[in-house]
């Protein structure tokens, strides 16, 4: 009886299906698909890539670029199907923007030699000629921010609002802790064990401030909760991954922005030459991938502070400073 259910449903949907015609994609359009675990406007990891793709789009002639995306692909099985389907539909570049998608790409990429795949954060392209892999060296930015924060607050207390203790959230925070304590500021760190719990994130920020921290930082899509607390209490926020200044124009000192454009440009120009991957990229200060966006528009920022940050970044690039403490 229940089987009948599904058959009838199938039948009716089939009729609906026949009414629609498949849309063929033009060949001269550069088609990009992006799969992400969060949203295009999460003020963090996903948004940084989406915005870079938007920039990429502007380098193409009108109508010569198509960007589609799948949000909320936190279930890896769904993401895998999305990756395969986009490749099937003939997208030129498929970006699997989440470290959990690596294994899926390893399986899928060999079946689509004509498609370029990119994924990150990761370090391996699994020997595949059509996978590019990228990794944000968040600890570099973290270290500089730690130093800047210590200087800005005159070695005041600093608070870090972390999500889950893993991935680039952890490497950023470890770098920050290291930078700040080298400069002589006490740092306290909280983790809410969730990427999305806004309310707990805001409670964590409040706790940091109750304990005397005036400058906070943190990562993940739940940081708007923390920024809101900083705003209410007239504190200072340092943002990571994407520009958080719009969240609190009076309170965000600086954001460390992931600018994927240099990496994307390289991937695209290699594709034009017929090379679809086989490269590993690091997002660092060196190639302008890690960028400071200072809130000079709304705040008075000591130029020395900016100079110091640039200097530290240069030293990290030159290998004179190691952002993470020696193990």
């Amino acid at each position: 009886m229940l089987k009948k259910n599904s058959i009838v449903v199938l039948f009716i949907i089939a009729i609906l299906a026949m009414a629609a015609l498949p849309v063929a994609a033009a060949d001269d359009v550069f088609q990009v698909a992006m799969i992400m675990p969060s949203k295009i406007n999460d003020y963090s990891f996903s948004q940084s890539m989406y915005e870079a793709l938007k920039v990429l789009e502007s380098t193409f002639p009108e109508g010569g670029f198509e960007l589609v995306y799948s949000e909320d692909m936190f279930n890896v099985a769904d993401a895998r199907e999305a990756i395969r389907d986009y490749a099937d539909m003939g997208y030129d570049l498929v970006i699997a923007h989440g470290s959990q998608y690596g294994t899926s790409l390893q399986e899928i990429a060999p079946d689509y030699p004509e498609t370029a795949f990119a994924w990150g954060n990761g370090t391996e392209f699994y020997g595949q000629p059509n996978i590019s892999v990228y990794q944000a060296r968040a600890e570099q930015g973290g270290y500089v921010f730690g130093q800047v924060a210590a200087k800005y607050t005159n070695n005041g207390k600093l608070g870090v609002c972390g999500p889950v203790e893993s991935g680039d959230a952890k490497t950023y925070i470890d770098g920050f802790k290291n930078g700040a304590s080298e400069a002589g500021s006490p740092v306290s760190v909280t983790y809410t064990s969730s990427f999305s719990d806004v309310s707990l994130m805001s409670a964590a920020a409040q706790t940091h401030m109750d304990e005397g921290a005036t400058l906070l930082t943190g990562t993940s899509q739940s940081i708007p909760g923390a920024v809101s607390v900083v705003k209410e209490n007239n504190g200072i926020w340092m943002g990571v991954q994407w520009d958080t200044i719009p969240l609190a124009p009076e309170n965000v000192l600086v954001s460390l922005v992931y600018d994927w454009s240099p990496i994307l440009n390289d991937i695209v120009s290699n594709m034009k030459e017929g090379s679809f991957g086989g490269r590993a990229y690091d997002l660092t200060f060196k190639d302008g991938g890690l960028k400071f966006v200072w809130n000079t528009e709304n705040m008075e920022i000591d130029p020395e502070l900016i100079a110091m940050a640039d200097d530290l970044a240069a030293k990290i690039t030159a290998g004179e400073i190691s952002p993470l403490p020696a193990q």
Binding site: Q100, G102, G122, T123, Q135, E139, S166, G167, D168, T171
Partner: peptide, 10 residues
């Protein structure tokens, strides 16, 4: 690798 993604080994 320093990526520290929260997952077990294969």
């Amino acid at each position: 690798m320093g990526t520290r993604a929260a997952q077990t080994a294969l």
